Amino acid sequence: MFKNLDAEQARHSYTNQRMADMVGISRVSYENKKKNGKFTALEAKKMCKIFKVKFDYLFATDEDEAR
């Protein structure tokens, strides 16, 4: 759903388990949230800090780019 999140995760060689651990949720929850886009504000903020990027970049969707 979020191609930039996928790209940053791959660029840093972070597994889904590692990301889940850093965010403070289970791997299964992390993978489900990547699919459905339902990260909490705190989880999203943590990921922005991990990758040192802005929210709008990290969570951009194909829909956002069509506008």
Rank of each mutant, 00 (worst) to 15 (best):
T15C: 01
A66D: 12
K45Y: 00
A60F: 00
A60P: 04
T15Q: 03
A7K: 15
M47D: 02
E43Q: 15
E31H: 05
V23L: 06
N32Y: 08
R18L: 10
L5C: 05
T61M: 06
Q17A: 14
E8A: 06
K38D: 10
K35N: 06
K38N: 13
N4A: 01
F39P: 07
A66I: 15
K38V: 01
R11I: 12
F2T: 11
Y14V: 02
M1F: 05
A44T: 11
Q9V: 09
K33G: 01
T40S: 15
K34H: 06
Q9G: 06
K49L: 04
D64Y: 06
A7F: 11
Y30C: 12
H12F: 14
K34A: 05
A60G: 01
R67T: 08
M47Q: 09
N36A: 07
T40W: 09
H12A: 10
R67S: 09
K52Q: 12
C48Y: 10
L58F: 04
E8H: 10
K45Q: 03
T15L: 01
Y30A: 07
F59I: 04
R67W: 06
V53S: 01
A66M: 13
K45N: 00
S26P: 03
K33F: 01
M22L: 15
Q9K: 15
R18I: 09
D6A: 11
M1K: 07
E65I: 11
L42H: 06
K45I: 05
T40E: 10
R11L: 13
Y57P: 12
C48I: 13
K33V: 02
S26A: 04
H12P: 03
E43T: 10
M22D: 00
K33A: 03
D6F: 07
G24W: 08
L5M: 08
T15K: 04
T40A: 03
Y14N: 06
Q17L: 14
K52P: 00
E43A: 10
D6W: 06
A7Y: 06
A7T: 07
D6H: 12
I50E: 03
K45D: 05
S26D: 05
K34W: 00
A7I: 09
E63W: 03
R67Q: 08
F2N: 09
K49Y: 00
A66F: 10
A41W: 11
K38L: 03
K35F: 02
D56K: 08
K3E: 01
M47C: 08
A10F: 08
N16T: 07
A60T: 12
M1I: 09
Q17D: 12
C48N: 14
C48K: 12
K49T: 07
S13A: 07
L42F: 05
R27S: 02
Q9T: 13
A7R: 13
D21H: 10
Y30H: 11
D62N: 14
N4D: 02
F59D: 04
K46C: 02
Y14I: 03
Q17E: 13
M19P: 05
K52S: 11
Q9S: 04
A60D: 08
S26H: 06
R11F: 09
R18N: 04
A41S: 12
